[in-house]
Simulated assay, not measured.
Amino acid sequence: MSSYLSINESKLKEANGYWTAREIAQQPDMWLQTTEQVNASKEKINAWLKPLLALDDLRIILTGAGTSAYIGETLAPLLNIKNSGKFEAIATTDIVSSPKQYLHKNRPTLMVSYGRSGSSPESVASVELADQCIEHCYHLVITCNPEGELALKAASSENMFALVLPSPTLDQSFAMTSSFTSMIVASLSIFQPDEEQLASAVLASRGLLGEGLERIKAQASLQTKRMVFLGSGGLQGIAKEAALKVLELTAGDVMSYYESPLGFRHGPKSLVNQKTEIILFSSSDPYGSLYEQDLYKELVNDGIALSVTQLNSETLNIPKKIDDVWCALPYILYCQIIAFFKSFNGGHTPDNPCPTGEVNRVVQGVTIYRLENTESEECH
């Protein structure tokens, strides 16, 4: 009988946690499959994408809702280092509610839309609003669902290109896990491929799922009421996603928070008490890591928090120094495992932690309103 996260399949199914555990555990394999799929489609992708990337004034918006929004927040800082600041991370939820603040009519724009289902109301509406507001707009859809609205729309639209990831990345569980990380890998494979760094991230992550699993399970057994995740630069996107995973999978029983290491002192540090766990994501940047190390020492010396954990290349056995965006993969895997076991041990049902339906796998209950343009109030 198969087992995932060291729990046998029958027990996982009994606890309604089978899909979450399986999808967390499959991620290193999914990253390799995703990279292979992108490479196999490289000729088509480049034929569509290269003319756009050659535009001097091109604006690239990385967008999604919830977990999918954090993909862009994780990627943009790294991608901008070598691309002259063309990349911006803007959530679809912001675009839909305030399109005139975010969409520039006369600036050629490539909107990269992320979506596990590709059918959330804001994802579809953002594409339509961008086409309405921007004179020259193009859409790269990265999704896990070939039958989603965005993938189907792309098939019949000249200004759209859809990349559908391997079928197992279409998570069946409530929480996005392998879909999130695989969409990150797909983006890197397109915009900034690095097979060596991917291999290091895969190796470290397999270590976490193997010999590192007992350590993570022990940490997850701590009697926690609050969890704090701290990351700088693109790692703040991972901090947001880690906080969301804990909140989702424990149905709010463990409250979570995210911040940057420097921002944490400016008020949020007040939430630390004897029931608070803190996880600090270390940057590969020597300069930025100085500030993270200072805060880590301060939190340990305070002696208030239940635990303070610093994740870095040494603690995760990453064989070589890799960029933050590649470190993000084993970092979020570590936190997904913690969130799963806090849910599992707390008597929740990880595959559907909110069975009463207030929160859904694909967002429901969103009314999309028509945007009426006037001469004095049009997208700028």
Score class of each variant (00 low, 15 high):
residue 260 S to D: 06
residue 164 V to A: 03
residue 205 S to M: 03
residue 173 S to F: 01
residue 245 K to F: 13
residue 67 T to V: 09
residue 181 T to N: 04
residue 332 I to Y: 02
residue 242 A to P: 02
residue 238 I to A: 03
residue 73 E to S: 13
residue 143 T to F: 02
residue 342 K to R: 05
residue 130 A to Q: 09
residue 198 L to P: 06
residue 254 V to K: 09
residue 36 E to M: 06
residue 244 L to F: 07
residue 85 G to I: 07
residue 365 G to L: 14
residue 157 S to L: 11
residue 210 G to L: 15
residue 204 A to N: 02
residue 161 F to A: 00
residue 64 G to H: 04
residue 128 E to L: 12
residue 142 I to D: 05
residue 308 V to N: 00
residue 255 M to L: 12
residue 325 V to P: 00
residue 61 I to S: 01
residue 366 V to E: 09
residue 89 A to W: 02
residue 55 L to F: 05
residue 189 S to D: 03
residue 195 E to N: 09
residue 378 E to D: 13
residue 165 L to S: 03
residue 150 L to Q: 08
residue 338 I to G: 04
residue 209 L to Y: 07
residue 37 Q to H: 06
residue 317 N to T: 14
residue 377 E to I: 07
residue 275 K to Q: 02
residue 218 A to D: 12
residue 376 S to R: 15
residue 112 V to F: 10
residue 230 L to A: 07
residue 267 G to A: 10
residue 119 S to F: 09
residue 54 A to F: 11
residue 15 A to S: 08
residue 338 I to Q: 10
residue 8 N to Y: 00
residue 160 M to W: 01
residue 376 S to Q: 13
residue 262 L to Y: 09
residue 231 G to W: 00
residue 239 A to P: 06
residue 154 A to L: 15
residue 181 T to E: 12
residue 225 K to F: 07
residue 200 S to G: 05
residue 173 S to A: 12
residue 345 N to K: 05
residue 285 D to M: 08
residue 323 D to V: 03
residue 8 N to F: 03
residue 26 Q to D: 07
residue 347 G to F: 10
residue 136 H to P: 13
residue 185 V to G: 05
residue 14 E to I: 05
residue 28 P to G: 09
residue 297 K to C: 15
residue 95 I to V: 01
residue 194 D to N: 13
residue 148 G to Q: 13
residue 174 F to C: 02
residue 194 D to P: 08
residue 298 E to N: 06
residue 373 N to H: 14
residue 31 W to M: 02
residue 301 N to Y: 15
residue 169 T to R: 00
residue 38 V to Y: 03
residue 217 K to H: 03
residue 20 T to P: 10
residue 380 H to S: 10
residue 164 V to N: 01
residue 287 Y to F: 14
